[in-house]
């Protein structure tokens, strides 16, 4: 005898890599980012295996002079592979934010989804109107409820913009001044954060500004600064 009701399904968790591929990211920065994300994938898959109640779907958006999705559709993490990013051009972060906002609308986002995770990785300053793109994200229910993480590479990054993107005084941008730190932060965002988001406990409205309680942020790297 079948179960009552229609098809059962775990709740989708949309994970967005929003990667700066502008000219200033060329060389060791983009190599380190490519390596860090590629190496984090097996552990991200492990997190997915450990929690079958959330189905992790990955999206990758690269931005420089314009922005484009790596895949037309979200990729289930079990099928996700990494193809190296290449660099050139400007830092049109606003365009990237607008494109993310399009994907956070309902539909394509289902109402029953888990809070999406947006991870922004950049080394620079936006060269376009980032505020209007960010406003588009923040005007959407899933934009407001998204867990927004920002990783700034090197000291030239505009951390005020990253703080604005996060929009929550309890979560600070992460500053990666060497490849080891970048690897550590990428791994944390794609495993620990995903783990917290994939089993979010319900909470009464108005109890704190954080939608999902994020665990311990990794400590700063002790390696020497190279960026």
């Amino acid at each position: 005898m079948p179960l009552p009701g229609g098809e059962l399904a775990s709740r989708p968790l949309y994970f967005f890599w929003i990667c700066d591929c502008s000219g200033s990211m060329s060389g060791q920065k983009i190599q380190s980012l490519n390596t860090a994300i590629r190496e984090s994938i097996p552990e991200m898959k492990q997190v997915a295996d450990d929690n079958p109640s959330g189905q992790i779907l990955v999206r990758v958006l690269e931005f420089s002079s314009g922005a484009k999705w790596r895949n037309t559709q979200p990729i289930p993490v079990e099928n996700f592979t990494w193809t190296d990013l290449v660099t050139s051009g400007e830092t049109e972060m606003g365009r990237a934010f607008s494109m993310v906002a399009e994907q956070l609308k309902m539909p394509p986002m289902p109402e029953r989804a888990l809070p999406p995770v947006l991870v922004l990785v950049t080394d620079g300053r936006p060269t376009d109107d980032y505020k209007s793109g960010l406003n588009q994200i923040m005007s959407l229910p899933w934009g407001k409820k998204a867990v927004r993480i920002a990783i700034g590479i090197g000291g030239d990054c505009d951390f005020d913009v990253l703080e604005e993107f996060i929009g929550n005084s309890e979560i600070k941008p992460l500053q990666a001044n060497n490849p080891e730190a970048l690897t550590r932060y990428i791994k944390w965002a794609s495993t620990a954060v995903v783990k917290d988001v994939s089993a979010p406990p319900s909470q009464p409205r108005g109890q704190g500004s954080v939608n999902v309680q994020i665990g311990q942020i990794p400590a700063a790297s002790t390696d020497p600064d190279v960026w």
């Binding site: 229910p141 979010p200 909470q203 409205r205 939608n211």
Partner: peptide, 13 residues
């Protein structure tokens, strides 16, 4: 519409 994501109205509020 206020009951979105993991936030809910509550007897404790």
């Amino acid at each position: 519409e206020r009951l979105f994501a993991n936030e809910t109205t509550s007897l404790c509020s």
